[in-house]
Amino acid sequence: MTPPLAVDIDGTLTDSNRALDPRVLDPIREWPEPVVVATGKALPYPVGLCEFLGIPVRVIAENGGAVYLADDDELEFHGDREAAQRVVEEYRELGHEVGYGKVDFTNRWRETELAVNLDQPLEPLKELAAAHGMHVFDTGYAYHVTSPGVDKGEGLRAVCDRLGVGIEEFAVVGDSENDAAAFELAGTAVAVANADETAKAAADHVTEGSYGDGFLEALDSLRDA
């Protein structure tokens, strides 16, 4: 039986340059069970992806900080954006930057966390986050300053409660440590070959293919399960 599916974006639906792999579009559209886009990106990105795919908007954004389902038209937030802002302000006082330029589309629409570019130093960010009772995810694409206990696993739990689906029925495909919490709760967890070690350790299966190739391989295995 084909499971409902939660899928990451960066590193899973994209290539190594973070461009969306066009081969993933039709298989997602045609998946017979609910598809949830689960990402560390701000809410407009997964919403836009669902809209352009032509599928119902079901998203977990900001590493679990924002959850929206078209099924009940409810948007819920979890996380302390103000605490994340305090961490970033003190980080800047130490002479560091967020690293996304003046306009900063990466953080412009974030409501529960903040992201810092990987070209900035991690250790002082982690120290400041800990001092404020916050947590830092290194997703391989950004450092995310977020509240403890807010993660994709809790986001998926909220989705399942609202859809009336057991979390063990879901399959999750991803590539990063921010996917690990969802991997540990889902019935089936698949890491693509380019995944980090945390994601691979939490997954039930690691694909031979990387990026979009790995995602398509994962779908084939889930159809045959």
Rank of each mutant, 00 (worst) to 15 (best):
7 V>E: 10
7 V>D: 10
8 D>S: 07
8 D>R: 09
14 T>L: 13
17 N>Y: 14
19 A>E: 13
20 L>F: 14
20 L>A: 08
23 R>D: 02
23 R>A: 14
25 L>N: 03
26 D>M: 05
30 E>Q: 06
30 E>Y: 00
34 P>Y: 07
35 V>W: 12
36 V>G: 12
36 V>I: 08
37 V>H: 02
38 A>H: 11
44 P>M: 14
46 P>W: 01
51 E>V: 06
52 F>L: 09
52 F>E: 05
54 G>K: 09
60 I>T: 12
61 A>R: 06
64 G>I: 15
65 G>N: 03
66 A>S: 06
66 A>W: 07
67 V>D: 02
69 L>A: 01
70 A>R: 10
78 H>G: 06
88 V>C: 13
88 V>I: 12
89 E>V: 10
97 E>P: 03
99 G>W: 02
107 N>P: 05
110 R>S: 06
111 E>Q: 09
113 E>K: 05
115 A>T: 11
123 E>N: 04
123 E>T: 04
127 E>A: 02
129 A>M: 11
139 T>N: 06
151 D>A: 11
153 G>C: 11
153 G>R: 07
153 G>F: 01
153 G>K: 06
153 G>P: 08
157 R>A: 13
158 A>Q: 13
159 V>F: 04
159 V>E: 13
160 C>I: 12
163 L>C: 09
165 V>M: 14
172 V>S: 09
174 G>C: 04
176 S>G: 07
177 E>T: 08
182 A>F: 01
183 F>Y: 15
189 A>V: 15
190 V>P: 15
191 A>N: 06
198 T>W: 00
201 A>G: 08
201 A>H: 11
203 A>I: 09
203 A>P: 08
208 E>N: 12
209 G>F: 00
210 S>N: 05
211 Y>L: 01
213 D>E: 12
214 G>K: 06
214 G>Q: 07
215 F>T: 10
220 D>A: 05
222 L>C: 04
